[in-house]
């Protein structure tokens, strides 16, 4: 399973703590997904996770406890200089966690990088369970998904503004309904 070159849109492969990540081009996601299901036996989609890397490796986002400005990764802390993490190619990552339900259990993470406003194909034709997961990624992270049959907010109200899991979503600023002033 080490050779992913035949995978459509294959970019790179990484391994960390025993987990394999395969990065594919966003345009080729659907055909890569079909190949992984039909030829590599990944018949089960466990999860889809969207991650916002805005401010990654910069100051003031991750935040040292209790300071408004946040934590500067380039200043020394009690445990020595913080290693600045490697940069990311684009702002958003979509992670598809695949599982092979078979005699030989295998897991694989398929990663797709997206810029803001970039659209991605739905993988529902390959794994129907992607429906709710993609709606959640759209709802909380604002990932635009093409050809989804029912793309609407799932966890938040239909008239909610913004996408709360984004790193630039203001904290503590949500308007409160039924406050005393009304």
């Amino acid at each position: 399973m080490s050779d992913w070159d035949a995978l459509p849109g294959f970019v790179e492969e990484r391994t960390q703590v025993g987990e394999t990540t395969v990065v594919v081009e966003p345009a080729e996601l659907l055909s890569a997904a079909a190949t992984l299901r039909d030829e590599h036996g990944f018949n089960f989609l466990s999860d889809i996770t969207a991650v916002d890397y805005l401010g990654w490796a910069g100051a003031g986002v991750s935040g040292y406890l209790g300071t408004a400005s946040g934590r500067d990764l380039n200043t020394p802390m009690t445990q020595g200089y913080q290693a600045v993490p490697a940069g990311k190619p684009k702002r958003f990552a979509m992670n598809y966690h695949l599982l092979s339900i078979s005699e030989r259990t295998r897991r694989l993470r398929v990663q797709v990088w997206l810029d803001e406003g970039e659209r991605i194909q739905s993988v529902i034709p390959v794994w129907p369970t992607a429906d709710f997961h993609e709606r959640e990624a759209f709802d909380l992270m604002g990932i635009a998904i093409d050809e989804h049959p029912n793309l609407k907010r799932i966890l938040l109200d239909d008239d909610w503004d913004g996408h709360p899991l984004r790193k630039d979503y203001p904290l503590g600023g949500e308007p409160v309904r039924f406050s005393g002033e009304e």
């Binding site: 299901r37 039909d38 018949n43 339900i101 078979s102 005699e103 529902i124 034709p125 390959v126 129907p128």
Partner: peptide, 15 residues
Amino acid sequence: PIYTGTRIPSPTPTV
């Protein structure tokens, strides 16, 4: 045997 094959019926709508 756990499950053999990769056939996934599509579409399997959630609505």
